[in-house]
Amino acid sequence: MQRVNMIMAESPGLITICLLGYLLSAECTVFLDHENANKILNRPKRYNSGKLEEFVQGNLERECMEEKCSFEEAREVFENTERTTEFWKQYVDGDQCESNPCLNGGSCKDDINSYECWCPFGFEGKNCELDVTCNIKNGRCEQFCKNSADNKVVCSCTEGYRLAENQKSCEPAVPFPCGRVSVSQTSKLTRAETVFPDVDYVNSTEAETILDNITQSTQSFNDFTRVVGGEDAKPGQFPWQVVLNGKVDAFCGGSIVNEKWIVTAAHCVETGVKITVVAGEHNIEETEHTEQKRNVIRIIPHHNYNAAINKYNHDIALLELDEPLVLNSYVTPICIADKEYTNIFLKFGSGYVSGWGRVFHKGRSALVLQYLRVPLVDRATCLRSTKFTIYNNMFCAGFHEGGRDSCQGDSGGPHVTEVEGTSFLTGIISWGEECAMKGKYGIYTKVSRYVNWIKEKTKLT
């Protein structure tokens, strides 16, 4: 034993070699072989497995989906700052455009905790909710729209109204504003409101030439003092309507412009014939205590009207009353817009006519005020429907199939267009061939041609 100890002390290297040989010859039971080890760690190889990531292109799944990435790591994937920024906006807080917040056709661009709407022409605001041009839906104005110097929408209202708090709607500024039905039992019968379409306001006024200088022999019209197929109006439903009495009662109609003036057809009036105007009328054979009678003290036909040349060209006249009318729910003026808007309103496509005229061709006159909704007829169809001249200051309205029309005794009465609950004068009943005849239409004086003249002559002093 002493000898062994001496050998170990003198030859430590020998001992180490012996131990190493023993270990190498022993069977290893701690580690699995290569094949079995792979069965336990069965993990798919990654895209760049075996390579240094710093030297390969980034992978979106590896960089940002398996674990949260930084902007720089995302930049490695896209290799483009702009594309990385677009991805980053949604990656950080989701897609803010998912709810489609942009209105009126706006395009949404996502941002971090926010979004941006790219608005089409005519709109602005956070969600493109603000109209900035009158060309689109009248700028959301209830009545009139004008573009300011910086191309912003400025709404306005006709006389007797003021802008509401929203700067879009119009509200009454006087007790009985024009064009409004205020009798409670008839307010439910107000005709369907007309909503502004998209309009090209630059070209809204037709490029028409008034044929002022045409000389033409007097034409022989049949029954051209021209509501057939209409309905009984309720008291106060058309408070701007008046009836004219002269040699015979209810020979023509008219509309209240203001307390002192009536507008009617020029062919209705004769110099030297006494005319009485009755406002607030409903049943011409009954006294309903809503009527107001006034005498006409002055007749002003349009300066281009000449019955000797043509009885229905420039067929418009103004009547001055001896005493002002007292405005109330049964006696209310009709609204008159400017030339541009009167023309736009007419193009809405349908209007209402009213009167006490004959209820059928050569038949009896109506006792109760009649009204009828009539569609506008395109000019080409209008011209083809008659052998008589249709001037540019006239328009056609009615039904091709016949059966409904204005008729004798309705002449001078109103053709009105309702705009968001307020009625505007767009025409004056003038003439036609018979009444409600198939293929024939009622012919009306186009008020847009005469609004400046009306307003100039009827100013209240």
Rank of each mutant, 00 (worst) to 15 (best):
E73Y: 08
F71M: 15
N138V: 06
H361Y: 07
I136E: 13
S423C: 05
G412K: 04
K247F: 05
R46V: 11
G50D: 14
T332H: 09
G351H: 11
I136K: 12
N258I: 01
V451M: 03
K311Y: 06
N147I: 05
I7H: 13
T84Y: 04
N147D: 10
L346K: 03
K146A: 10
I297R: 07
K347H: 07
R46E: 15
K446S: 14
F348T: 14
N36H: 11
G427S: 00
I40F: 08
H415W: 03
K311Q: 03
D223M: 11
L369C: 03
S107T: 13
C178A: 01
S156H: 06
A233C: 05
K311G: 09
V56M: 06
V273Y: 03
N166V: 01
H302V: 01
V248M: 11
Y115N: 12
V202C: 15
Y391R: 10
I443G: 03
S187T: 13
L325A: 01
I390H: 13
T133Y: 10
E35Y: 07
I284Y: 09
V451H: 08
I7T: 09
R191I: 10
K387M: 14
S255Y: 01
K446H: 11
G442E: 06
V154A: 10
V228D: 08
T264D: 01
L325N: 00
T85W: 04
E66F: 04
N295P: 03
V269H: 02
V368Q: 13
E54G: 11
E231W: 07
T389R: 10
L52H: 14
F144C: 00
N203H: 09
H314E: 05
F345E: 02
K89D: 10
W88Y: 14
G236A: 08
Y330K: 07
L372V: 12
H289Q: 04
E418D: 12
K459M: 13
K234Q: 04
T461M: 09
T342R: 00
A307W: 08
K457Q: 06
K68M: 13
P235H: 08
Y450P: 00
W356C: 06
A164W: 03
L367D: 11
S448T: 06
G160V: 00
A9G: 14
N295M: 07
L367Q: 11
T16N: 02
W431D: 10
T342E: 11
H400D: 11
C134Y: 02
Y305E: 01
K459E: 12
H282M: 05
N80G: 15
L41K: 11
M6H: 06
E61F: 07
N258R: 02
R379C: 15
N258D: 03
T342C: 03
F78C: 15
E171Q: 11
C28A: 07
S204I: 04
F388N: 13
E165I: 08
F123K: 06
D212V: 11
E142C: 01
N283K: 04
W356S: 04
F238E: 01
K152A: 09
S156M: 09
T264G: 01
F345N: 02
H34W: 07
L14S: 02
I275G: 02
K440P: 05
T81E: 07
N151M: 11
E420M: 12
L244G: 01
Q96D: 10
S114A: 12
L376G: 03
R3T: 04
S182K: 04
W261T: 01
P44V: 08
G432Y: 13
N213I: 07
S255N: 02
F238S: 04
R226N: 12
R364S: 15
P235A: 11
G246R: 04
S156G: 04
N147L: 10
V278D: 03
H302E: 02
S448R: 02
G125Y: 02
G229Y: 10
T190R: 05
V359K: 15
C108F: 02
G421W: 03
D315Y: 01
V416T: 14
D93M: 13
S187N: 04
G403N: 08
I210W: 12
G50S: 03
W431L: 04
F388I: 11
C145M: 03
H361P: 10
A149M: 08
G280F: 02
S11Q: 04
A250D: 05
E142S: 13
M437K: 11
I299T: 13
P235R: 09
I299F: 10
W431Y: 13
H302M: 02
R449M: 15
W356D: 02
I429C: 11
I112N: 13
H289I: 10
L346R: 09
S220R: 03
S169G: 08
W261I: 01
F123R: 14
E53K: 09
L346C: 02
Q185Y: 09
S182R: 06
N258L: 01
K45Y: 03
R373D: 05
P12M: 11
V368Y: 14
L130N: 11
K459F: 09
L32P: 15
G94L: 10
D322L: 01
T417G: 00
C435Y: 02
K146W: 08
D111S: 11
L23Q: 01
W118T: 09
I256A: 01
F399G: 10
A250N: 10
G413F: 03
T458V: 04
E129H: 07
A173M: 11
N38D: 13
G230N: 09
K89F: 05
R62K: 09
E288M: 07
F55E: 14
V30Y: 15
T215D: 03
V199E: 12
V228W: 08
C134R: 02
M6F: 13
K247T: 11
S217N: 05
L189M: 06
A436P: 15
V154E: 05
G13L: 12
N166C: 02
P197V: 09
Y312P: 03
G13F: 07
S354W: 04
G94F: 03
M8F: 12
F221N: 10
N59I: 03
Y441T: 10
T458F: 00
V368I: 15
H314S: 06
T290S: 08
Q237I: 08
K247D: 11
E67A: 13
E116F: 13
E67Q: 03
W356F: 08
N393R: 04
T389C: 15
N104T: 04
F144S: 00
N104R: 08
S350K: 06
R180Q: 06
N452K: 11
T194Q: 03
F144Y: 04
L103G: 11
A397K: 03
G160W: 02
V202L: 09
I210F: 05
G398N: 04
V377L: 13
M65E: 13
E35N: 14
C119V: 01
K68H: 09
H289T: 10
G412Q: 09
L383C: 10
K68F: 09
R43D: 14
R180E: 02
R83M: 03
P324T: 04
E193D: 10
C69H: 04
C69A: 08
I334V: 10
R62V: 10
K45M: 04
S187Q: 10
W118E: 11
P44R: 03
P414W: 05
F71G: 15
S70R: 14
I40Y: 09
P175W: 04
Y352T: 07
V257R: 00
C268Y: 01
F71Y: 05
D111L: 15
D110W: 15
A436T: 12
C119W: 01
N48H: 07
S49V: 09
I344V: 04
K339R: 10
Y161T: 01
S448A: 14
R298C: 02
G229Q: 09
S156Y: 12
N295C: 03
R46W: 04
P172F: 04
E124V: 13
G363P: 11
C268S: 00
V419Q: 07
T426L: 01
Y330N: 06
K39D: 15
V195Q: 08
E288A: 07
T445I: 02
F424S: 00
G421A: 13
I17T: 02
A37I: 15
N222G: 13
E82L: 05
G280R: 02
I336R: 00
E281W: 10
F196K: 09
G402R: 08
W118V: 10
W240H: 02
I297T: 07
A279W: 01
K455P: 01
P120R: 08
L211K: 09
F144A: 00
V56P: 14
W88N: 15
G179Y: 00
E98D: 06
S107M: 07
K440F: 04
S156T: 11
E10L: 07
T426A: 01
M437F: 06
C102K: 01
N328T: 14
S385I: 11
